[in-house]
Write a protein that binds this DNA or RNA. Structure first.
Length: 229
DNA sequence: ACCACGATCGTCT
DNA sequence: GACGATCGTGGTA
């Protein structure tokens, strides 16, 4: 194995301290970590393979740009560790991990996940219906992964570091579930974020992170992506 | 009250 | 590659 994605003990919940950093630091660290979703139908465990940082009041791409503190963005201003979930285009949901201290709006958009086991994949396919053909179609994209995990606004504000939550984060490397492939596909690339042309100069900063050659990644940016590890 | 728009996706050409 | 779906949100009046 080339490198461990985190310094935290494998298999347990990510501790509160994991979230006490900027979104820009947390975004690459979230790659490889395990997202756990408890639903009526069962538990889904998946590996995060693509993230984007939305950090601070100066980021023109962020909902909290300029310190905009409203009913929707309130969760972003809370302490790190909560889920920020919003509706986009009237029909899809997006999942974010809030980071940083109280009153500093930082969040990491989860853009793609991959199921850890065939059982996890079966349940995700059930939620996605007939649309999921290739891996990317199953959960490669923020709206798609929320559909695949049955995530909507009713989970906004859920604490990801609590074992009681229906949505939580565990450290990579559960013994029964090897976190990364052993073939070099845990190489992390950085590239500009997706679909934020309105963010002006912030539209080009390389704040998207994803695993090279991972089939679940939503958009491959061959021209502008570069290695960070 | 009104209105323009979006951290997307699926379909069609 | 282009386009429409669909509605909550935030800015403006």
């Amino acid at each position: 194995m080339k490198s461990m994605p985190s310094n935290f003990s494998a298999g347990g919940l990510l501790p509160l301290s994991f979230y006490a950093v900027s979104a820009l630091k947390a975004a690459p660290r979230l790659l490889g970590q395990t997202l756990v979703r408890e639903t009526e139908e069962g538990e889904i465990r998946c590996r995060i393979v693509e993230t984007e940082s939305y950090g601070g009041v100066e980021d023109k791409g962020s909902h909290a740009y300029g310190g905009r503190r409203t009913a929707r963005t309130e969760i972003m201003f809370g302490e790190g560790g909560a889920a920020y979930i919003y509706l986009i285009y009237g029909m899809y949901h997006c999942l974010n991990v809030v980071t940083g201290p109280q009153d500093d709006p930082q969040a990491v958009l989860i853009r793609a996940v991959e199921p850890l086991t065939p059982g996890d994949e079966d349940l995700m396919r059930a939620y996605r219906g007939s649309l999921a053909r290739r891996p990317m179609d199953l959960s490669g994209g923020p709206g798609k992964l929320c559909r695949a995990l049955n995530i909507d606004k009713s989970l906004n504000g859920v604490l990801l570091h609590s074992g009681d939550s229906p949505l939580r984060l565990e450290a990579a490397g559960t013994p029964a579930e090897p976190p990364a492939r052993d073939d070099g596909s845990d190489i992390i690339l950085a590239a500009p974020r997706i679909n934020i042309a309105y963010a002006a100069e912030y539209a080009e900063v390389p704040w998207r992170f994803y695993y090279q050659d991972n089939p679940y990644v939503s958009v491959v940016d061959k021209n502008r992506a570069f290695l960070i590890n």
